[in-house]
Design a protein around this nucleic acid. Structure first.
Length: 765
DNA sequence: AGAACGTTCATTTTT
DNA sequence: TGAACGTTCT
């Protein structure tokens, strides 16, 4: 086979495995039958996985077409794809490297009609789900309280994760409430079906249903996927577990990689038992442990091992390294969260590392604020990961709704969203008439609009509803017929509907930002089409629906990374600050009071994940007081601190001292120079305050946008600045707005203007 | 239709 | 504390 020949050229006839350690090599060569690779943090599992794939192709003559590799994130899939391509060379394209969800969509697009879905079904995100639920509750005449809506959706989501359908839920319902939820669940599913839509959980659930009901379809995929690899197996939920089991049932060449100690998504339905009982599910399974860590120093690993050792339910595993001990792990306590942030950011600012080598991790997003403020105060550039998804922005959802309507006319939610955006004089009254008419005739809303001339009492609004329908028809025709590109289609929508015009007229402060976001969407479409998906609207929508926002980090800029512990999984940084080490925050009070010891264990795993992100320097910090939900909360140091033997921590004095084994009693020791608050006037002036949603055209196709804020301008309030259109002026205010920093400038010739820092492009005059 | 006010509610969130 | 939503008022 040519692949083999190609590899052979690089040396002898046997693939070079000398760069692997014994465990990795074993994992690569044990190709037949079930295999569990327990891969500790930083133990080179991706290396093992990619080499295994290459080995299958090059040494075992396995057709790439017969290999399936499943990951959870696009980022992981992308990395694996890249490395496999490098190792395997030509032919690697035949290997399916995909996320669970993307794989399921691909299967469902082909066979969805067996379940009563059309190929172009819409994929509903959380916001869409809420809308759908709202309407479902309304239809059932249940008054929808926000809480209830979310609760019901959560119940449905876990049911789907557990492969429980509405009927089964009804059967199992223990009480009136449960039966009620089951009823709503059924109605919600009918709503989705009518809209030819699936939510995220459905993608997996429906694929399993498809396979159960159609053994011949399953058989086709079983035959094809002779070798299956699953990454992050500890994070699989029941539905994913079952899906994998089905696919692997014939050949049983199933290799899963995971680390039970890094299972941190139980709240999303992940079932740690899937990995713990792998050997029961697959009798005769081979188990390989990868325990050598290549990432961290000895000190950091000691701390990680000490903490995780306190968990009861785990596969015994101890990471080791031949790296030197390195710098001791530091622990610092502060009187207030304010001081903690101050210390961390000053420590970073005064350090010698490039900012991009540093990460500040925290348990909850709310904690990010203080760090942001301090970054601004000390002019430390930072990137905040998390927050609002690019695709949830109003203007993006609007445009995508147009595309959805064009691709899938049954999607009533999308129609409702755009029918009067921009304003077409189709208000609530008209819409409701069309809705009643559509329901009565078994039409989708969109079809209702197309026949709206027949609606009694619609009066003069008919002209508008018909105009809307024919405009949509025109878009469709353009798309179906003469090969509009997606970019062309979006431009067409912006122009012909007057969307762009309305944006311009509103002239609001966010106008430029919105337009810029739409630009990004267009860029996204262009790169999608360059990737070969020309005019494939469904493909594009799918791409967009399945992308999360923490997918890819732009690490080209020199910025400190701020993110949650969850967000940090799978990443590594030379220097890490693990903040908020306080009882009640981390571990969270919910996990402590739930009465389920496994909840605290999950928090402990999260702590372990955080610690093992660090390569060289690790600092743990905590505060005695902090503002939580508007009230001041006092807390003890996290029990995780107490679980680290005192001699492993360098706790000299960030104001307190640690008494070993005394859960770090907080004393009133004097504060040292390093965490002394800076007085008002010595505080550096606001540096540049731009908060940019960085994203980008530069990112490879399939990668997502990322929420980023930056800070490195050079003007502050009172400064003279110049704008390329408005000329010179004086900055009167700099305010932290919802999207970006808002700068108010009093221009000499153009009066007072409020503008977004990132788009104003102001220069110091 | 949109501003202005009031109410409620708060972990984590790979898709 | 503050955001995100719903309601009411203009």
């Amino acid at each position: 086979m040519y692949l083999r020949a190609q590899l052979a050229e690089s040396g002898d006839d046997v693939m070079d495995l000398s760069t692997l350690n014994a465990g990795q090599r074993e994992a690569v060569c044990h190709t037949e039958g079930p295999l569990l690779i327990l891969a500790g943090a930083g133990s080179g599992k991706t290396r093992a996985l990619t080499h295994r794939i290459a080995y299958l192709v090059a040494e075992k003559n396995v057709n790439p077409w017969n290999i399936l590799a499943i990951t959870f994130t696009n980022k992981a899939a992308g990395e694996m794809r890249e490395r496999v391509d490098q190792l395997v060379g030509f032919g690697a394209g035949g290997i399916w490297v995909s996320t669970f969800h993307a794989m399921c969509v691909r299967i469902l697009r082909r066979h969805g009609q067996l379940l009563g879905f059309e190929g172009a079904f819409s994929i509903y995100d959380t916001a869409d789900q809420r809308q759908a639920m709202k309407q479902t509750l309304r239809a059932l005449d249940i008054d929808s309280q926000r809480l209830k809506e979310r609760q019901v959706l959560a119940a449905i989501s876990s049911a789907k994760d557990e492969l429980v359908g509405p009927e089964q839920m009804a059967r199992q319902a223990a009480d009136y409430y449960g039966g009620h939820v089951a009823q709503i669940y059924g109605e919600y599913q009918r709503f989705l079906k009518r809209n030819n839509a699936m939510d995220f959980d459905d993608l997996i659930f429906q694929t399993v249903r498809l396979f159960s009901k159609n053994p011949e379809v399953l058989g086709e995929y079983q035959e094809r996927f002779r070798y299956i690899l699953v990454d992050e197996y500890q994070d699989t939920n029941t539905a994913q577990f079952e899906l994998v089991r089905m696919l692997a049932d014939k050949h049983k060449n199933i290799c899963v990689v995971g680390d039970d100690d890094q299972s941190i998504y139980k709240f999303r339905g992940a079932n740690i038992r899937n990995i713990l009982s792998f050997e029961d599910t697959y009798p005769g399974a081979k188990v390989i442990k990868l325990e050598q860590n290549y990432r961290s120093t000895g000190s950091i690993l000691d701390v990680a091992n000490a903490v995780i050792a306190h968990n009861r339910s785990r596969k015994c595993k101890t990471l080791w390294t031949d790296h030197a001990a390195g710098a001791p792990v530091r622990y610092r306590e502060f009187p207030q969260s304010f001081d903690e942030a101050e210390f961390v950011i000053r420590d970073i600012a005064g350090g010698t590392r490039p900012y991009k080598d540093v990460a500040v991790l925290y348990r909850t997003n709310a904690q990010s604020r203080l760090f942001e403020e301090k970054c601004v105060a000390y002019s430390v550039p930072y990137r905040l990961v998390g927050g609002v998804n690019f695709y949830q922005r109003k203007e993006i959802k609007d445009i995508l709704s147009y595309l959805k309507v064009i691709a899938n006319g049954a999607d009533d939610l999308a129609v409702e969203r755009i029918v009067n955006v921009p304003r077409r004089g189709i208000g609530a009254a008209t819409l409701s008439k069309v809705r009643v008419f559509s329901t009565a005739n078994g039409y989708s809303l969109y079809e209702g609009f197309r026949h709206s001339a027949n609606i009694p009492g619609i009066g003069r609004a008919a002209a508008r509803t018909e105009a809307f329908a024919s405009q949509m028809e025109a878009f469709r025709a353009g798309m179906a017929g003469s090969g509009f590109t997606i970019k062309g289609l979006i431009e067409e929508i912006l122009d012909k509907t007057g969307y762009r015009e309305e944006l311009e007229e509103e002239g609001d402060i966010e106008y430029a930002a919105r337009l810029e976001n739409i630009e990004e969407l267009v860029n996204k479409a262009v790169s999608f089409e360059e990737g070969g998906g020309k005019g494939d609207l469904e493909g594009f929508l799918e791409e967009v629906a399945l992308v999360a926002d923490v997918d890819r980090m732009d690490d080209t800029q020199d910025q400190v990374t701020l993110m949650t512990l969850h967000g940090a999984k799978g990443l590594e940084f030379p220097q890490v600050y693990l903040s908020g080490m306080e009882e009640g925050l981390f571990p969270s009070s919910q996990s402590i009071s739930s009465g389920d010891a496994s909840d605290v264990e999950e928090e402990r795993r999260l702590c372990y994940v955080g610690i093992t992100r660090a390569m060289e320097d690790l600092t743990l910090t905590g505060a005695r007081k902090r503002l939580v939900n508007g009230e001041l909360r006092y807390s003890m140091p996290s029990r995780f601190i107490g679980e680290i033997p005192g001699e492993l921590l360098e706790a000299t004095n960030g104001g307190y001292h640690m008494e070993s084994n005394n859960k770090g009693r907080m004393g009133d020791a004097p504060r040292t120079e390093t965490n002394k608050p800076v007085s008002g006037e010595s505080r550096p002036s606001f540096g540049r305050l731009s908060r940019v949603d960085e994203s980008s055209s530069k990112l490879p196709f399939g990668k997502s946008f990322q929420i980023v804020k930056e800070s490195n301008l050079d003007y502050k309030e009172g400064d003279r600045v110049s704008h390329q259109r408005f000329g010179d002026g004086t900055v009167t205010e700099i305010k932290d707005g919802p999207k970006d920093y808002e700068v108010t400038v009093n221009f000499d010739t153009h009066g007072v203007k409020k503008m977004l820092a990132s788009f104003a492009k102001l220069k110091r005059a």
